[in-house]
Amino acid sequence: MGNEREVRATPAPDAVDARLGARLAELRAERGWSLGELAERSGVSRSTLSRAERAEVSPTAALLNRLCHVYGRTMSQLLSEVESGPAPLVRAAEQTVWEDRACGFVRRSVSPPHAGLRGELVEGRLAAGADIAYDRPPVPGLEQHIWVLDGTLEVTAGDVVHRVGTGDCLRLRVWGPTRFRCPGAEDTRYVLAVVLP
């Protein structure tokens, strides 16, 4: 089963975590799956899934990626489903920011949220030394454009390692495991454009 380090304990759930937990429970219920069935499909323990659905813990990026894969949606789609109604314009101060403190990752949903998105923009920030490994894409064949604004980002797709520096842009289709690593002494900031197949 999944690694218990995929979640971090929080003293009280914040509003986003509470809505996210409720949405995860809804998605499981819509499919008629028990926690055990979801655990088998995702590789995450039943207790971790239960705690995430009750917002007793804040899920990590790796955990959300596993659940997105099972539910056939991107992380942005999932996060947009816990926001209020779609708007054509979202101001910088209103953009959803989600943080995985355990691995030093901050994710800002730049595109106005909408459950029917085919393309979207995300700003990512990785702390120096941060390393995030995804064991599978949320949607097989997902197209990603990664444009580094500051710093250096090491992106591994399958067995190929790409070192992407400031101003560089990497385009790839994701079919298997990926890894995002900030190898330098400085934080890395990048734009991720995601396009559904």
Rank of each mutant, 00 (worst) to 15 (best):
V44K: 06
L142A: 00
R101F: 01
R41G: 09
N65L: 00
L117D: 10
L126T: 06
A62P: 02
S34R: 11
R108G: 04
R91W: 01
V70R: 00
V106P: 01
A128R: 14
S50F: 14
A29N: 15
Q77G: 09
Q77I: 02
W33C: 07
E94N: 10
L89C: 07
A128Q: 13
A52D: 06
T48G: 03
E94W: 06
R73G: 00
R91G: 04
I132V: 15
A55G: 09
Q77F: 02
R136K: 11
L67T: 05
Q77M: 09
T48M: 11
E83G: 09
P140T: 02
G141P: 07
G36D: 14
V97P: 07
Q144W: 00
V139R: 03
V148D: 02
Y71H: 09
G36T: 14
S109A: 09
A102M: 03
R66E: 06
V148G: 01
T96S: 06
L78W: 01
E37S: 11
H69P: 03
P137A: 07
H145D: 02
R118T: 12
E56F: 08
I146W: 01
M75F: 11
G72V: 00
G124W: 02
G36E: 12
S42D: 12
G141Y: 01
A102C: 00
T60V: 05
A130G: 14
P113E: 07
R46N: 14
L35E: 10
A92H: 08
R108T: 15
Q77L: 04
E94I: 04
L49R: 09
P59L: 10
R41T: 12
W98Y: 10
P137E: 06
P112R: 11
I132A: 07
S47E: 12
A92W: 04
E40H: 11
S45A: 15
Y71W: 08
R51L: 14
R136W: 06
V139T: 04
L63P: 01
H145G: 02
V110P: 01
P59R: 06
L79G: 05
T60R: 03
E123R: 13
G141T: 03
E81A: 14
D100M: 03
E37W: 04
V90G: 03
D131G: 07
S47P: 01
A130E: 07
P113L: 06
V110T: 05
S76E: 08
H145W: 03
Y134L: 08
A39G: 11
L78E: 01
V70A: 01
M75Y: 08
A52R: 08
T74E: 03
S84Q: 07
A102Q: 05
P138M: 12
E99K: 04
S58F: 06
H145I: 02
E40P: 02
S58A: 15
S42N: 12
A102S: 10
S45F: 14
R54I: 09
G124M: 10
G124F: 03
H145F: 04
A115Y: 12
E120Q: 15
A39N: 13
Q77R: 13
